[in-house]
Amino acid sequence: MPRVWLALAWHELSERARDRWVLLISFVFAGLASAVTMYSRSADGGAAQLTGPSLVTLASLLIPLIALVLGHDAIVGERERNTLGLLFSLPIGRTGVVVAKYTGRLLALTFSITLGFGLAALAASEQHRGVLSQLWWPSLLLGSAFLSLGMLISSISMRQVTAVSTVIFAWFVLVFFYDLGLLALLVGADGRVSSLTIERLVAANPAGLFRVEMMSRFTAKSTLVDLGIREQSLSRMAPLIWGLWIVMPVACSGIFLWGKKSV
């Protein structure tokens, strides 16, 4: 089992390294991150202070997209290419295939994020390198959560085109519209929604949790307080929420395939 698992994970990694879409988005991310840090380096103090928030915004937009692109064809793509039967004929269980695929793709994602921040670090000043290093691990958590979601979408989709549409929809909802919805709720409810509810709603979305966690490091604390979010409460919940977002979709994906009559 470990040998098959390792082979499959390595196979996934090497295949993803040749995937032109993954490469394209990764280099776009690396290019934009480098552009932000280069601009900050040449800018005056005020603009330079926006480096952290700018990189957070960039990461919260592009890393979910990279992760969803990486995950969306994991199962349904193999099924459409008629390669799934051969994989499942290897001495490994259905859940093992899902976990191995997730691991391989997570390694590719790690490489992509490291490449992005690494290239940006080359162009950054000493101070901004610290910002980039603070972003690496949370960005990886963010990517892991969206990759997990992508795997689930891939497992339950019958066709690859459905998986593509679903991940794009998920990206728009979780990255763009969710926060706008919360904002609308705050304004519309006019103070009738408790701060606890707001916290829970923010934390329910990995992109929101990432933004809040990172903004608390790079912006004034009052910004979060104004939104009714208590940073301490959120930081206590964060590990559990990240864990759930990373583990649950992959686990559901494995359970779904395990329970299916036919792969």
Binding site: H11, S14, E15, R18, D19, R81, N82, T83, G85, L86, S89
Partner: peptide, 12 residues
């Protein structure tokens, strides 16, 4: 096992 109309990852 040899599946019907066997296929492989095209970029390998």
């Amino acid at each position: 096992y040899l599946p019907e109309a066997v296929a492989f990852a095209n970029n390998l």
